[in-house]
Nucleic acid binder design. Structure first.
Lengths: 153, 153
DNA sequence: TTCGCTGCAAACCATTTGCACCCAT
DNA sequence: ATGGGTGCAAATGGTTTGCAGCGAA
C-alpha cells in the first residue's frame, strides 16, 4: 500500500483535474479513486468493481470504467494491456515514475522492474525525433523459471 | 517491400511450421501470407482483408484472423496493440530482429526505431529473472513535432 | 477417406453509451 | 436550477467460434 503522503498528493492532483475540467466530485468517484490508489498492482475495471462490491454494492461497473478513464487522463493511472484481453490500470506513485513489466506467457505472472539506463535511452530516442514524450510502455514476454522447469509444450 | 530472399525465407519457415503442427497448406493461406509478407507496416486483420478483397473477394475475414494467428505463432508476425483498439501485425524480417515504436497520440503516426543498447539491457533484465525471453514490446507515446507546432491540448 | 480448412453467420465479451433520474455546485 | 453523474440495460465492435460443406494429404 502506498504511503499516505503519496495518496494525499494523488487525491490533490485528482481534485485539481476535476476542477480544471468542470467535472464534479461525487461519493462514488471518491470511493473508487480511494480504493484504486491504495491497491497495489494491475487492476482491471472488473476487479476493482468486485472489490468495491463488498462494501459498496450499488456502484455500477460503468462508473468504474468512467472513473478509471478520468484517472488515466489526469495522469494518475497508466493503462496497460497485457495478453488476457483486459485493460489494466496501475497507480504509479507521485513522481510519475513507472516501472516496466516482464510477463510470463505460461502462467501469466507479471514481474516489475526499473532500469534507469533504459529510461534514459528512451528519452534520447524521443528527443532525437522531436517528440514530446508523455508515456511509455515496455513489456518483455517470456517463460518464467517455474514454467520452464514444469516443462512446456 | 522486403527483399525477395527475405520473403522466401519466411515462406519456408511458414511451411515448416505448418508441417510440424499437422496443418495444411491452402490457397487462401498462401494468398494471405504472401500479401502480409510483402506489405510493410502495421496491418490489422481488417486492413489486410480489405487489401485482398480487391483481387480475391471470396476470402473471409475469419480466415484472415486465423492465418494471422498462425503467423504470430510461427514467429513471423509480431502482434502490436497501439491505442486504436485494433490488433496490428507486423512482419519483422528473417532475422527475427524487431524495432520499437514511437507513437504520436495527436495524429496517430507511428515511427520506428532500433536501439541495440536497449535490446541488450532488456535481455539482461530477462536473464536476471531467469526468464526465457520470447518477445518484447516497447512503445513510446508522445506528441510529434507537427502536432506540437499545430498547438492543441 | 481422413481431418483440417473455409465462409458465413451467430456468439463472445470487454467496453461504451442512451436514458431517466439524482445530486453537487 | 443547471448540467454533469449514476446505474441499468442495451448497444458496440473487434475477434472468435459452430457448422456444413470443401479440399489437401
Amino acid at each position: 500500500m502506498p504511503k499516505p503522503s503519496a495518496i494525499n498528493h494523488a487525491m490533490q492532483k485528482y481534485g485539481e483535474y476535476l476542477t480544471r475540467h468542470g467535472l464534479k466530485s461525487t461519493v462514488q468517484r471518491e470511493i473508487i479513486v480511494n480504493e484504486f490508489l491504495r491497491t497495489k498492482g494491475h487492476l482491471s475495471a472488473d476487479e476493482l468493481h468486485s472489490r468495491l462490491r463488498v462494501s459498496h454494492s450499488s456502484i455500477g461497473l460503468a462508473t468504474v470504467y468512467r472513473t478509471l478513464k478520468i484517472l488515466a487522463e489526469a495522469g494518475l493511472a497508466h493503462e496497460r494491456r497485457f495478453k488476457d484481453g483486459y485493460s489494466r490500470y496501475e497507480y504509479t506513485g507521485p513522481d510519475g515514475m513507472h516501472h516496466d513489466h516482464i510477463v510470463c506467457v505460461g502462467c501469466g505472472q507479471v514481474e516489475e522492474f526499473e532500469n534507469k539506463e533504459i529510461e534514459t535511452l528512451q528519452r534520447q530516442e524521443a528527443e532525437k525525433r522531436h517528440f514530446k514524450m508523455l508515456d511509455h510502455k515496455f513489456e518483455i514476454y517470456g517463460i518464467c523459471r517455474q514454467c520452464q522447469e514444469r516443462g512446456g509444450e
